[in-house]
Amino acid sequence: MLSFVGLALATVQNQLGPDPVKQLALLTGNRGFQFLLLSLLISPLAQLLAAPYLIQWRRPAGLWAFYFLSLHLLVFAQGYIGWSWVILIEELIERPYISVGALAWVLLVPLALTSTRAARLKLGASWAILHRLVYVVAVLGCLHLIWQVRSDWINAGVYTLICVLIAGSRYRNALRF
């Protein structure tokens, strides 16, 4: 929450430099992906440390990820394409990094909507299966970064490595339906 207030203040006071659109897109995208990875890290960490109380942080982490990635989308719509459908469609067709990013956000929507306790109880066993979509989102997120590498791969490389490590640690779990 604090980081959001900080961002909002910085935006209003024009402290993000001459190109705040780009800064905001970077900041919200990075923060969103970091929360997404954090939400994925919590289960293996809880298991590893035998600390089941950590699980309570999983849902807020996921929701913060959704929140920042939604902001990311809003910044894109406002700053990059000026809310133009024509340009949006063109970008989705021509630039795969944008289409995989958009798809990742779309897949997060049902996860955010079914994040309530009531939804979880109602969906029962299928809730867990549905929420494995988050791994697909993580893979799409990595693709979104890898496709944007220009002359330096460190950022995309580190995120992808973390994803691979998490996926590796959850591999056996994923097979259990």
């Binding site: 190109d19 705040p20 659109v21």
Partner: peptide
């Protein structure tokens, strides 16, 4: 391939 070149952000710009 990464950026549409039809428009540009003339700096300084704001959100």
């Amino acid at each position: 391939p990464r950026w549409s070149q039809r428009y540009e952000r003339r700096l300084p710009s704001s959100l």
